[in-house]
Write a protein that binds this DNA or RNA. Structure first.
Lengths: 235, 235
DNA sequence: TGTGGATTTTTTGTCGACAAACAGTATACA
DNA sequence: TGTATACTGTTTGTCGACAAAAAATCCACA
């Protein structure tokens, strides 16, 4: 006769699920700026919050540190990584290049089944633009381009691109929280043109469209940064 | 009066150094193919080997898993990641693009102090070619291009490029162990031309040279792969 | 009141132990 | 003989506790 444990922890968990839960949640909280950059992370506090030992918490933190989302000083505090506002050019360079590369590869390597996912995200993006929901625009735009990158089937580009999109999620939210600018409808149209080029397997056109699209985004963010800086100087 | 601990572990270690030691060593052993792809990794065995608990071993393994160097099946064995021989095209695509991007950026952004490091690695590479030491060629070539990437000052490209070079270190070693082909002297000359373009801050030429250089390497590896495959078929 | 050193407090890194999950083997049964 | 189930052994995931390291606090002394 097999006996079940009579006394169980208040919230019973499957064996390996704890780290993933903590990792996913912390990751989301960091990227959504619920945990602001620079804020400290306390292992014991997290352990109490999730009713688990420090060991799985620690493993989740090690993973987050590996992605650069948190920083740990040896023997001392660990905190949410800061956003580097001084060097945005490298970020933009990488972003534009990944837009180009992934869209080109999508035109070359996509399969029929990829298109449904891409079109789905594009519809969600159009809806977000219609609703003027800035946060939804950021999320659906990232999902759209990530789907294109998946269709391109290059794991190296996909990994870097997703990292860039994640950082952008943090980065952009800072500005779209204060400025209720809506992304112009033009972005929706450009997305449509990119889809057409991908479907037609026209790699050159797809890359060219992606490049122009990315530069648009960079220009818009740059103008936001400049006006923000003006504001700071004026104060 | 402060008292020192009379009985210490056989090999005393500083507090946070264990994980780094294990991480560095395992990483090197994996990249140098001392640990062959697919071979299992035993936590307890490593713990005994380094005279430490499983906890720091585990942390090092989590980090390696984050970089994709090892794979862990949940609740079951962890092993060295396999090399994917079927999809080499994505690898080559990423390699060529990173060669181009980093060399271009180095021409634009390098400082005077970067050139010494680059020239030093180039001299080491030339020496390795002279000595027909294939393994040294791989290492010094990677160091040379990594130094160029550092001079380009884009952390996103640098991270991806270093990952690509690492994988190449594993990948290439497989072939240069069996085939004692020496990389042609032409590679040394091409490196020199790239340095000149970087010094002259001629971004277009630097990128063009890097592209041709990378394609050379790709062609050589591809021909090795084909002859290898022929050999397999003949057997 | 200010400063330098000793002391306490807090947080991290490491340890040994235990329990769950899975693989392989043995055993019962048809 | 073949199959399903129980058993055993091995490896992983988690836990509570302790020790080391750095910060914060206290305290003596000028």
């Amino acid at each position: 006769m097999t006996k079940k444990p009579e006394v169980s922890r208040s919230t019973e968990r499957k064996r390996g699920s704890g780290v993933k839960m903590v990792y996913d949640l912390l990751r989301d909280e960091i990227l959504d700026l619920v945990l602001s950059p620079g804020s400290p992370i306390d292992e014991v506090q997290l352990a109490e919050r999730f009713n688990m030992s420090r060991t799985p918490i620690r493993e989740a933190l090690v993973r987050l540190a590996g992605e650069g989302l948190i920083q740990t000083l040896p023997n001392r505090s660990t905190m949410v990584s800061n956003i580097d506002y001084l060097n945005v050019s490298p970020y933009f360079d990488a972003m534009v290049l990944m837009y180009r590369a992934t869209t080109r590869l999508a035109a070359e390597n996509h399969r029929e089944s990829d298109l449904a996912a891409i079109r789905g995200h594009q519809a969600a993006f159009a809806a977000a633009v219609q609703a003027q929901d800035a946060l939804a625009m950021i999320a659906t735009n990232a999902a759209f381009h990530s789907a294109i990158a998946e269709a391109g089937r290059n794991p190296y580009f996909l990994a870097l691109f997703n990292r860039i999109l994640d950082e952008g999620r943090r980065f952009l939210r800072l500005y779209y929280q204060s400025y209720e600018d809506r992304l112009p409808q033009r972005f929706v149209d450009e997305h449509e043109a990119m889809i057409d080029a991908i479907v037609a397997r026209d790699a050159d056109t797809a890359e060219q469209l992606a490049r122009a699209h990315a530069n648009q985004i960079v220009d818009q963010i740059r103008s936001l940064l400049i006006s923000e800086r003006r504001l700071e100087i004026a104060l």
